[in-house]
């Protein structure tokens, strides 16, 4: 393991980090309110409800009205965090566009259970396009934390940020990569390992898989950068260009459709600034299915071994 992930830290889901961060945000600022659409046990906004029942609003299974109501709160000086599953936030997409992003209201949307790692619930519940659609909205900040600590810090960072945002959260426990001293900054990527042969820009659960892949590759004599891109918008273009220049071989890794997500964001920057060879790892314009998360990651080429194989092949071509 590239010395980054220490197994003894255990595994915690990013949604847990969000729940913890939300409570901390509520303690820090009495204007914080939380809304949920009958999923507060799953999104962990329930933890906020326990702490601040008078500032928690159950909106029923009605995501559109949850988003609209959150906007009304923001217009009245409150700081609303509205959570549901990533897929159901999309049901309110036109409100996110017309109410939240058009007016750049201070609403923090959190979409949990994103990606195929959601697992057994199958493709109807696995959002693989959320980053793509929200990325197309002006003003929208998009964050996908890679571990629970990052999720907690990001949730608190958003408290200080005035504007609209979408945070993509995951259901399953993930190894904790960061420690409590970690400083999170919106829009700033993070280099976790270094290597001259290639760079993997990874986000969310695929950061850990990419780090593991980097270990496999090291055994084969291939050294890669692995960079954590927690903020997909605004993208850390400086870091993307810098590492592309250093390696001339760019790979992106995400549990999302390869269309419109991190891969597209990186490609857009590189094609205009530093065109170079590039490979997008993600769902190849297909939906997932039911199954265990690790089985799905293997089948759809998102696990460490598949990533290592792809990178190996790609770097080989390059040499």
């Amino acid at each position: 393991m590239a010395g980054i992930v220490k197994e003894e830290k255990g595994k915690i889901a990013t949604r847990d980090g969000y729940g913890k961060g939300l409570v901390a945000a509520g303690k820090e600022n009495k204007n914080v309110v939380a809304l949920d659409a009958d999923l507060s046990d799953s999104t962990r906004s329930e933890w906020f409800k326990k702490e601040f029942p008078e500032r928690f609003f159950s909106m029923g299974i009605a995501e559109q009205n949850m988003i609209g109501t959150a906007a009304g709160f923001a217009l009245s000086g409150k700081i609303p965090y509205a959570s549901t599953f990533a897929i159901f936030s999309e049901r309110a997409f036109e409100l996110v566009r017309n109410v939240i992003s058009r007016n750049n209201l201070n609403v923090k949307i959190a979409g949990s259970h994103a990606g195929i790692s959601t697992g057994e619930d199958g493709k109807s519940a696995q959002a693989i396009e959320d980053i793509a659609i929200y990325r197309s909205l002006p003003n929208m900040v998009i964050i996908q934390p890679c571990d629970a600590i990052e999720a907690e810090k990001a949730t608190l960072s958003l408290l200080e940020y005035k504007g609209c945002s979408y945070m993509r959260l995951l259901r399953n426990p993930l190894p904790v990569i960061h420690d409590i001293r970690y400083k999170f900054e919106i829009g700033k990527g993070e280099i976790l390992t270094k290597g001259k042969d290639a760079v993997i820009f990874a986000t969310g659960a695929l950061l850990y898989e990419s780090l593991k892949a980097a270990d496999f590759l090291k055994e084969k004599g291939i050294n890669v950068y692995v960079a954590n891109i927690h903020t997909i918008k605004p993208l850390d273009t400086k870091l993307v260009i810098e590492l592309a220049k250093k390696t001339d071989c760019v790979i992106t890794a995400e549990d999302h459709n390869i269309i419109g997500g991190l891969g597209s964001a990186v490609a857009e920057v590189l094609v205009e600034n530093y065109p170079c060879r590039m490979k997008r790892i993600g769902l190849k314009d297909v939906y997932g299915e039911s199954g265990k998360p690790d089985e799905l990651y293997r089948k759809y080429g998102l696990d460490a071994e598949s990533i290592a194989k792809e990178v190996n092949k790609f770097v080989g071509k390059n040499k």
Partner: peptide, 9 residues
């Protein structure tokens, strides 16, 4: 829907 939020606030 926005009115709900303003009224709740």
């Amino acid at each position: 829907s926005v009115a709900n939020g303003i009224a709740l606030a």
